[in-house]
Amino acid sequence: MATVVQEPARPRVPSAPIDILNTDLAKLYTHIHPVLLLSVYAFKFNSIVENPVTALSETLVAVGILQVVFSAICLPPTGGSATPLGDKRKPGEKKKGAPSPVASAVNGTVIPAFLALVLAIIAGIPILGVLLVLFGAPISTHWEHTALCAAHISFLTAIPLTYVHGVDGSTWREIVSLELPIDEVYGCLIGTMLGAWLGAVPIPLDWDREWQKWPITIVTGAYIGFAVGKSVGGTLLKGKTVLFG
């Protein structure tokens, strides 16, 4: 539904789309990751339908770990200067005063990843939870369900985004207003949101299926949207931006 066109001429310097790190591991894992994520979700699906709160909490832990690992392996951390995991220095090259590989990994990868996880929890969950309520999630009941739904969407979108873009206010303004050029990470956000939005469609149908209950369809839509958005954002739509009018 968004109108997508080739790089429009804009007065300020456009942000460049994010590329996957240029390592073999990153290039491999970026394809494995969505499959892994969907497999975990599919594996837990029946127990989620049976007991949403418990099963979604368990799945959330796994998803959090996977998303952090994905960010650390495949994505350039915020600032872009750090050495990614698995990157090898050229033999013989030695720099005075340069941080040790371990310290560099800690500063460049572990800290942003940890930061991304913390922000996804303390900022992402409340904001998305409120958004879900505004879209019609129950106000007085099902709080755990709504919070877990928000948490899943937050982990899917906010962890890689924060890892890559940090906490810069103007960048986040661009993220929220859909002004960044589309890439793999941004595609995840748009795909997840659209998937969650469309996930509301089957709820009212009178099929009397267990899986129609809150918030399973939304979370399922979000996961499918994540996978689609990631692959489309990294390929077909890469570098394009969303135009409103």
Binding site: M1, V242, F244
Partner: peptide, 11 residues
Amino acid sequence: PSSIWSWISII
């Protein structure tokens, strides 16, 4: 439809 607004109006 030429903009996101006309698209969502139709949708």
